[in-house]
């Protein structure tokens, strides 16, 4: 069973198709880099996979179940642009809250473990609003990985992260890959993405124009993909 099966997905804004005939199959354990220019539809597609939006046509199946099912959302982790944390709650309170929302058996313990993992144990009782930007980002990473998701969705993950946060994120992504989890990453930053990715998909004007394994050629010549399949 594929980790992700996207079949004939269209998304209309009014009568304008932002996504057209999008079809994608992602095998379990792969790391997919979703590439494309601004406005190509990456965020739209990711939002649909995350269950934040419904496709106008077509279906998204995550491990065989519909994206909006509760059991599916249990197994997805999302790291988007916003940090998705409550400023007025402390680090431990934030993570415990999400632990409870995800139905974890011992939310507090898991939150403590995660704080340790992202290097925020020292400030576990500090309010999120008092944290520096880098600390907030690390806490956000902790939240996304808290429930040990089987499928992880990352929207521009390396943008605006400081060094320490990038290091934490990279190590957590690596540990997920080691455990055979699936990662889908949408990004501009070709170099970082292509290094981590096992597969790539290029989205252009709402359509997938190329999908396949990441090749050495892509790594050596990062512009190759856009030149070959792009329209400039």
């Amino acid at each position: 069973m594929n980790a992700l099966e996207i079949a004939d997905v269209w998304k209309y804004y009014g009568d304008f198709p932002a996504l057209r005939e999008v079809a994608l199959n992602i095998e379990p354990g792969s790391t997919m880099a979703l590439l494309g220019r601004n406005g190509a539809g990456k965020t739209t597609l990711l939002r649909i996979i995350a269950g934040l939006s419904r496709p106008s046509r077509g279906s998204i199946k995550i491990q065989g179940a519909d994206a909006r099912d509760q059991s599916t959302r249990q197994r997805i982790g999302v790291l988007g642009h916003g940090i998705a944390l409550y400023d007025e709650l402390s680090a431990i309170e934030n993570l415990t809250l999400f632990g409870k929302l995800y139905g974890l058996p011992d939310p507090r313990k898991r939150a403590d473990e995660m704080l340790e993992r992202v290097g925020l144990s020292r400030v576990r009782d500090g309010l999120a609003r008092e944290f520096s930007r880098g600390m907030r980002q690390r806490l956000a990473v902790g939240r996304a990985f808290l429930h040990d998701p089987e499928v992880l969705l990352l929207d521009e993950p390396f943008t605006a992260l400081d060094d320490r946060a990038i290091a934490v994120l990279q190590s957590m992504i690596q540990s997920m890959r080691d455990r055979g989890r699936t990662i889908i990453m949408s990004t501009h930053q070709l170099r970082e993405a292509l290094e981590l990715a096992s597969h790539v998909a290029l989205l252009q004007r709402g359509q997938i124009v190329h999908t396949g394994e990441r090749t050495q050629q892509m790594l050596d010549d990062t512009g190759w993909l856009y030149r070959t399949y792009g329209d400039n």
Binding site: G14, D15, F16, R205
Partner: peptide, 13 residues
């Protein structure tokens, strides 16, 4: 209005 909206979105895309 729908048609104009679609054309505008196409132009912006």
């Amino acid at each position: 209005a729908r048609e104009i909206d679609t054309l505008r979105r196409m132009a912006h895309a």
